[in-house]
């Protein structure tokens, strides 16, 4: 655990430290009179927490989504499923550690799982490429969803990537082709698919495993077509200016779970414990498991042909435009 404290959380930790100090002092000096003061500060702390976390800005949520201690795909697999059998490799070039895949049981029901995987420390992050998959990752995901189809197992997809890997090798081996093909195949897959954005949903790299019958999003996750930083760089060119405006870009992009629910892109928001999923993993895990199980229950009796037609309808309806009667231009 990195224990990283985000800027906007500092007042909370300051107060916590004060209370700790006071408590230690009260014990060593045996001053019972301080108890009242400690209780007062604890109430203040609870209020402060509520206030800070109740009204997070979009940029603050982006920071929570990127918190190094935030649970990742393998944590949720271990937390809510059993008998996980990890499956490696794309059968063409290699095994991408930024994308994990395998079979698992959710309350005894066999499922296929695919998901981006970030590391929990620098060493693991280097191995996992910070959750940025290359074509091998997307081709592995494609192989696994086709296996799911063959064995009639539902698919659970967990999105958590800043974006697909922007390297030369990834490009050379067909990054765009690999992503396009998973999107396409998941569009017509003959088993139910439930997608959850658990952390970062960065652009095509996220959507690459994002087509499903239900799309859920953790409360502090973000999902849009570009990172706030890249958006800012494109708009402002100048590096300093771009860095200063990234928070505004996060606002402009409307990339939070609440935004996406309003825009009709996701089906539900999974509430996180106060401060984010890393503050209480078991609560976050339980909330997500419940949401996934409920989503399954909603679609489990739908015949697969109908489900696919509904999937097509769902994504056909995405987008906002006006229809004018004539063409004045």
């Amino acid at each position: 655990m990195s224990g990283l404290i985000l800027d906007f959380e500092k007042p909370i930790y300051e107060l916590e430290r004060q209370i700790d100090e006071m408590r230690n002092f009260a014990v060593t000096e045996n001053i019972g009179a301080l108890n009242e003061e400690i209780q007062r500060l604890e109430k203040k702390l609870a209020r402060l927490r509520e206030n800070i976390y109740a009204d997070l800005t979009r940029w603050q949520r982006v920071q929570i989504a990127r918190h190094p201690d935030r649970p990742h795909t393998l944590d949720y697999i271990a937390g809510m499923m059993t008998d996980f059998v990890e499956l490696h490799g794309d059968r063409a070039f290699g095994d991408d550690k930024a994308m994990v895949a395998g079979m698992a049981k959710l309350d005894g029901m066999p499922v296929m799982v695919i998901g981006h995987q970030k590391g929990s420390d620098t060493k693991e992050n280097l191995m996992r490429n910070f959750g940025m998959a290359g074509p091998e990752g997307y081709r592995k995901a494609l192989r696994i969803v086709k296996l799911a189809e063959k064995f009639e197992m539902p698919v659970l997809a967990f999105i958590d990537t800043p974006g697909a890997y922007p390297g030369a090798g990834a490009e050379e081996r067909g990054q765009a082709d690999a992503i396009a093909r998973v999107i396409y195949e998941m569009g017509r897959l003959t088993v139910p698919i439930i997608v959850t954005v658990i952390g970062e949903g960065g652009s095509g790299g996220a959507l690459g495993i994002g087509v499903g019958d239900r799309v859920l999003m953790m409360e502090n996750a973000w999902y849009t077509t570009i990172t706030p930083e890249a958006c800012s760089t494109i708009l402002w060119k100048d590096q300093e200016k771009a860095a200063a405006r990234k928070t505004d870009c996060a606002e402009a992009l409307r990339l939070t779970a609440a935004d996406l629910l309003e825009l009709g892109v996701i089906d539900g928001i999974v509430e996180e414990p106060l401060g984010g999923a890393h503050h209480d993993f078991s609560a976050a895990n339980q909330a997500l498991k419940t949401a996934i199980s409920e989503s399954f229950a909603e679609i489990t009796s739908t015949p697969i042909d109908t489900l696919i037609l509904e999937r097509i309808d769902k994504f056909s309806n995405m987008g906002v435009y006006d229809v004018v009667p004539a063409d004045p231009v």
Binding site: Y223, L263, M318
Partner: peptide, 12 residues
């Protein structure tokens, strides 16, 4: 934003 991204899914 996200609506542009979803056009990839819609067309595919």
């Amino acid at each position: 934003g996200i609506l542009s991204l979803m056009q990839m899914a819609k067309t595919a």
